[in-house]
């Protein structure tokens, strides 16, 4: 009996429960793994040191220790803070991540929204990913702190500016695949051919390489990682919109940062790297429900390593340089990419 049939026999609430658990695991476990592998270890090795080594073997339980520490801390509200807005902001940011992971398929049946009946896909994903801007603006405003407010405004300006190249880069992929359905984009890459060769399919990183690079740069900026970390520039704004947060709510922001990195990397790997597809195995085969999430995990780790490698290497952009890069450089190139993709799509 195939996994699909087993799954179909469960009641709706049981299926929903499994999917909610899977979404939590897909966001939180991946975020924890990224914190350990990239923030604790990769950056340490890049600086020729070892990083955390005490908690668990090779410091692998360090994150649990950090979580325990943050939960114990006092939940401080500034005296003049807008209490509701201040308290809700981290949840809004984290909710945006959980909404975004919903669109990512990790196998022919391993999805969170039904890809057979819905064509929302990447359209929904790009829409809900913008919700985090609201949370950050809420955090900046609610703190009643000038550093927080400046950080929140900078973050808003940056996220809106880089939302555009992100969306325009995706449009190229959507034109080539002819669909917004994330699962169908994977099938289109698996069944595609490049120059008559169909061995590896056609992962769109080959034909949409420009869009891929724009997507990566815009993703870096959406995550507010260096060199785009102007909103949390610690030398001028303490930690920007997170300045007044402590304890659990700071932890939510911290996890949200890495969870969003993982989810954006998942979206990028579906759009450009062929998602759960392995060359030689039918992407619709039943076994891909088990292999698919692993393949996705490898791609997520690889892509986020690029993000954090850049983060740990580059100095920070100035605010005007940052805006200029988005509006004068990335958006025109993304638009040109759409035009060229459209012409070639019609021509062939």
């Amino acid at each position: 009996m195939s996994t699909t049939q087993v799954f179909a026999e469960l009641a709706y609430w049981q299926q929903t429960g499994i999917r909610v658990g899977a979404a939590l695991a897909a966001v939180l476990l991946v975020a924890g793994a990224l914190v350990y592998m990239h923030l604790f270890k990769a950056v340490s090795f890049m600086q020729s040191r070892l990083g955390p080594m005490e908690a668990g073997p090779y410091g692998s339980l360090q994150l649990l220790a950090e979580v325990g520490k943050h939960i114990q801390k006092e939940d401080i509200f500034p005296a003049k803070a807008d209490r509701f807005v201040f308290g809700a902001a981290p949840f809004v940011v984290l909710a945006s991540t959980f909404l975004l992971v919903v669109v990512v398929p990790a196998g022919p049946d391993a999805w969170f929204i039904d890809h057979h009946n819905s064509d929302l896909g990447i359209y929904l994903g790009l829409a809900v990913s913008s919700v985090s801007v609201l949370g950050i603006l809420m955090a900046g405003w609610g703190s009643s702190n000038k550093y927080s407010l400046l950080g929140g405004l900078r973050a808003t300006g940056q996220l809106i500016a880089y939302e555009l190249p992100l969306i325009l880069a995706v449009v190229g992929v959507v034109i080539q695949a002819g669909t917004m359905n994330m699962a169908d984009i994977v099938y289109a890459q698996a069944n595609g051919e490049i120059f008559g060769l169909g061995i590896v399919g056609n992962p769109y990183i080959l034909t949409q390489g420009v869009a891929f690079i724009i997507f990566l740069i815009a993703m870096q900026a959406e995550l507010a990682q260096a060199p785009f970390d102007m909103p949390v520039a610690e030398s001028e704004l303490v930690t920007g919109y997170m300045t007044e947060y402590s304890g659990m709510r700071f932890l939510l922001f911290f996890i949200g940062e890495f969870a969003t990195a993982g989810v954006f990397a998942a979206v990028a790997s579906v759009l450009f790297l062929g998602g759960w597809y392995i060359p030689g195995i039918d992407p619709g085969a039943d076994v891909m429900n088990l292999l698919g999430p692993l393949v996705m995990l490898v791609k997520i780790v690889g892509l986020t390593f690029l993000v954090f490698w850049t983060r740990f290497t580059m100095p920070r952009f100035r605010e005007d340089q940052l805006q200029r890069l988005a509006w004068k450089f990335l958006i025109p190139i993304a638009l040109a990419n759409i035009v060229v993709t459209g012409i070639l799509k019609v021509a062939f």
Binding site: A42, S44, F45, M46, Q47, S48, R49, W309, T313
Partner: peptide, 9 residues
């Protein structure tokens, strides 16, 4: 530079 330092470590 950062990549080669990481590999060396």
């Amino acid at each position: 530079v950062t990549g080669s330092t990481m590999m060396r470590t």
